[in-house]
Design a protein around this nucleic acid. Structure first.
Lengths: 133, 133, 133, 133
DNA sequence: GTGGTCTAGACCACG
DNA sequence: GTGGTCTAGACCACA
């Protein structure tokens, strides 16, 4: 894993292990991490990020539970092949509703902190284009 | 407060009081709740949402700290007038970086759960248009 | 009661009725209100201060309980003669400890808000001299 | 934290969590608690004081909001370095007025309970001297 | 009526 | 081990 770089913010309200999980998952989803690729060892990454090794271990465990990676004693942790899960229709509708509400709540939070609406809208467009293009 | 409707999901990992805060803040930001308007009483809303009154009280207190509402003993809780905060340039850039990263992480999480990328992109466009229109 | 003037701050965290009680009690202790003197009616004072008449009524009731005033239906509320209570030695020591701790906590709170220590010390001296002189 | 000792009075009208906040803040202001020092855990202090752990947790949260301490999941709560705040002139005058009124009200309350004026004056002098010396 | 504080104790999240 | 959230329900303070 030389390409994508992890960055965690210890002052953030989001817990360290969650930041690691979120970013690694994103790398998997976006393809920055490919199946078969090896992740750094728990202790190595812990040192690099300046966190406790338990924190990294917990993040790896969570990702393994989600089916993104495979951890095994004595062997490097590797990214798994991942079949696209196609949820049932009902579940998908529920996901969409949840997505929409959380997205709007999140945007309101950023606006409340002073991020101008046009900048937010611009960013949303950019990301949307990336996903479609 | 007859217009906007709160909905909380007790099975969500996001704590109930946080969901209440996020949604009420959004109503304030989006104008669904207007300054001077009275919120339902702590105990009333608690019954409506099916949570304990302490949970709602904590949410109200958090919103009061953020400056969105005013809570006082023996009187109804009301929405406050809110001056637009214009953060400094440096702070704004930091906010934008944070926004971008959290947005991408969030999207990856939804994709991981099986929400198709095109649906997500579509939603992003819709929301962006609403904000600009 | 034309002399001493009540002023209450509705934005203060200290409840309105408490501010009224504290100030009237102080006037009694300091002699600004003398025994036999009549207080304004509940409703009159409520209008003057801009609070609900129940709030003033509650304050009067509290002061009556403490023995400072006498309230009676249909007659003006009057300040009572007040024998100096001389608490028992043990109780007095307890009072002194409590006084000292609350005083120091209070001072720390003001310093935390940015009031310079010399100003505070100066004020303490002034008040001490007034009490002795 | 072996030095300063907390004492709370459950019979006092001042809520327990407030007493904890007031005293810990005082220790920070007076230097009895130094930056970097660790506070006892929420549950530990709760047992020591004979209150529920929620009560202590609330006090810690309040102090964290004021910027005196840092609380984090799974790690000990520590005292923060604290920049001296220098309020604006107008704000300072407001603080002084507020200080004076609250001080006089407080003294009147203690006198009403039977604390002799000379003892109070003496205490005020002592504290003033400590602050100047 | 309103909101505030507290206790009892369960269960979760984090490092 | 740490702190966080929540419920159940009692009791108080305030207008």
């Amino acid at each position: 894993m030389t390409g994508p770089v992890l960055a965690i913010d210890l002052k953030s309200p989001v817990p360290a292990y969650r930041q690691i999980v979120d970013q690694l998952r994103r790398f998997c989803v976006e393809g920055a991490l490919e199946p078969g690729e090896a992740l750094p060892s728990v202790r190595r990454l812990a040192v690099d990020l300046g966190v406790h090794h338990n924190t990294v271990a917990e993040a790896y465990r969570a990702l393994a539970l989600e089916g993104w990676i495979e951890v095994a004693h004595g062997r490097p942790t590797v990214v798994l092949e991942r079949a696209a899960t196609a949820p049932k229709r009902e579940r998908r509708l529920e996901l969409e509703r949840s997505f929409e509400r959380r997205l709007r709540d999140f945007i309101a939070e950023m606006r409340a902190q002073g991020l101008p609406a046009p900048r937010i809208a611009g960013r949303l467009r950019t990301v949307a284009e990336e996903m479609e293009g």
